[in-house]
Each structure stands twice: as structure tokens, then as C-alpha cells.
């Protein structure tokens, strides 16, 4: 099951990035979560045919990757892997919408192609923003941020448990799958029957594990309420971070620097 191992490694790599020590990593996670939300809303609030106005938004992922010293190639590969799913639906746009909207010299571009490209750019922007959020913040911190922003505690705690045991169980599942693969030849033995009992026994083991965890919690004085320490402070750097990015996104939403730039440059030469 090379694919499971690979997926796990990939997961862990992204997870480890969050252990970085840049100034960005040290910010209160709430600021980072909020900025990403403002970013996402700004990006998707553009009309269907917008393309050039979306491009300046790449400044956000680029600056963050630079500041936090994240591996750009790795993140780009991850983003590229996801984009086809958005394109599956977007690719129909050129077929449906063939009306010519833009002329680039001799080339005429239909609205469909424009909106399809717009979908692609949106996907690149939104996906990279999400990945960068994880890579600079880390999942547990995101959970805490969301909890402080009003997410119910039960849900937050449950998320932390999920995250904690994800690696444990994925490895356990991976071992079981490997054992099945080694004893099956071709597609024989990989069918639904063996799958169901494999997953079934994984489920039972998981359940027992949950019981043991609960035992370990009781042994340490757990009485039903989770006590969580607070260790972040929403100070001036956070405030600055949130305000400056939000202001920039609003500005980029209202004015299109690509257009302005282009007009200026082509004006110079004509």
C-alpha cells in the first residue's frame, strides 16, 4: 500500500511545517484564520468573468510563503493535485458559453474560456490559502482559534482527538491493507468482502482504543469537562496583521491594479 504510506508522509510533512519559528508562525492563530477568511471571501466575491483582477491576490500566498520560509515547490505540487477537481466542472463553461467577450489582437476569447480560467485561478488561490494556513499555524492551533472564535467546545475537543489518532489509525489501517495486499494476487482478495471485514476489524480495534483512552483520561482525574489552557494573546502584531491584509484585500477588490498597470504600460508605448 505504497499510496497510503505516501499519503501519510505527505500529511506529516505539511504538519511538520507548522513547527516553524518565523514571526508568522508565532502570531495568534485567530489573526491568521480571520485573514484567510477575509481573503477567501474577497476572492470568491468576484464575478464569473473576472480574471485579471484576481491575479494581484497571489500576493498573499507569495508573501506568506516568503515570510514563513515554506517550501514553495511542495505546496505548488499539492495545489496542482487538487485543481483538476474544480476544473472537472469548470471545463464545461467553454462548451456552454461560446459568446466572444475579449479580443487579444487577432485572438478572440469566449466568455466560457474566461470563466473557466477564472475558476482555475480561484482554485489556485483558495487552495493555496488553506494549505498555507495549516503550514503556518498547525491544526491544533487552528482548532483553538476556532474555539475562541465561538466554535462549540465539544466539537473542538473531538477534532483534537481526531487529529491525534489520525496518524495512529492510518498506520494501523495501512498495516492491515499491506497484509491483505501481500496475500492477494492481482485483484483477487482485494474485493468488497475482504474490505468489509478488514474495515470491520479496524473499527472494532478503534472502538477498544477509544475505551482505553477514556480509561486513561479517568485515571488522570477527568470529570467530563475539558480544561484547556490559553496561551495566545491577540496583541498589536495580530491586530496589525489582520488590519493590513484585510485593507489590502478590500483595496484589491475595489481597484484592479493589473488593469491600471497595464493601462499605464501600454500607454507609455503607444
Amino acid at each position: 500500500m505504497a499510496s497510503i504510506d505516501a499519503a501519510l508522509l505527505d500529511f506529516q510533512r505539511l504538519d511538520r511545517l507548522a513547527a516553524g519559528s518565523s514571526a508568522l508562525h508565532r502570531l495568534d492563530p485567530r489573526a491568521k484564520v480571520l485573514v484567510v477568511l477575509v481573503f477567501l471571501v474577497s476572492v470568491i466575491s468576484f464575478g464569473r468573468y473576472q480574471l485579471s483582477a484576481l491575479l494581484p491576490f497571489f500576493v498573499f500566498p507569495a508573501v506568506l510563503i516568503g515570510c514563513a520560509d515554506l517550501p514553495a515547490g511542495y505546496l505548488a505540487r499539492k495545489v496542482a493535485l487538487v485543481c483538476p477537481f474544480a476544473l472537472v466542472v469548470g471545463i464545461f463553461n467553454p462548451l456552454v458559453d461560446t459568446e466572444i467577450m475579449v479580443h487579444l489582437g487577432p485572438v478572440a476569447i469566449s466568455g466560457g474560456w474566461l470563466s473557466c480560467a477564472s475558476i482555475l485561478v480561484r482554485a489556485l488561490l483558495t487552495v493555496s490559502a488553506a494549505l498555507i494556513l495549516v503550514a503556518t499555524t498547525g491544526f491544533p492551533a487552528i482548532c483553538r482559534a476556532l474555539e475562541q472564535l465561538g466554535m462549540p467546545k465539544v466539537f473542538a475537543v473531538q477534532l483534537l482527538f481526531l487529529y491525534r489518532y489520525l496518524f495512529v489509525l492510518a498506520e494501523e489501517g495501512g498495516r492491515a491493507a499491506r497484509a491483505r495486499e501481500l496475500r492477494s494476487f492481482g485483484n483477487k482478495g482485494q474485493g468488497m468482502a475482504s474490505y468489509s471485514s478488514l474495515i470491520g476489524s479496524l473499527l472494532l480495534k478503534t472502538w477498544q482504543r477509544a475505551e482505553r483512552i477514556h480509561m486513561a483520561m479517568l485515571a488522570r482525574g477527568f470529570t467530563g469537562a475539558f480544561q484547556v489552557r490559553q496561551h495566545y494573546r491577540f496583541g498589536r502584531p495580530e491586530f496589525l496583521y489582520l488590519c493590513s491584509w484585510s485593507a489590502l484585500f478590500v483595496l484589491l477588490r475595489l481597484f484592479n491594479p493589473a488593469e491600471l498597470f497595464g493601462a499605464f504600460l501600454t500607454g507609455l508605448f503607444s
Partner: peptide
């Protein structure tokens, strides 16, 4: 009480 499987004992992030 320290349990046999540390993965069960260490459940926090």
C-alpha cells in the same frame, strides 16, 4: 497509572 500502550495514554495534541 501508566498504561501499556503510550498512544492511549497520550491523547492530547
Amino acid at each position: 497509572m501508566v498504561f501499556q500502550e503510550p498512544d492511549d495514554q497520550l491523547f492530547m495534541p
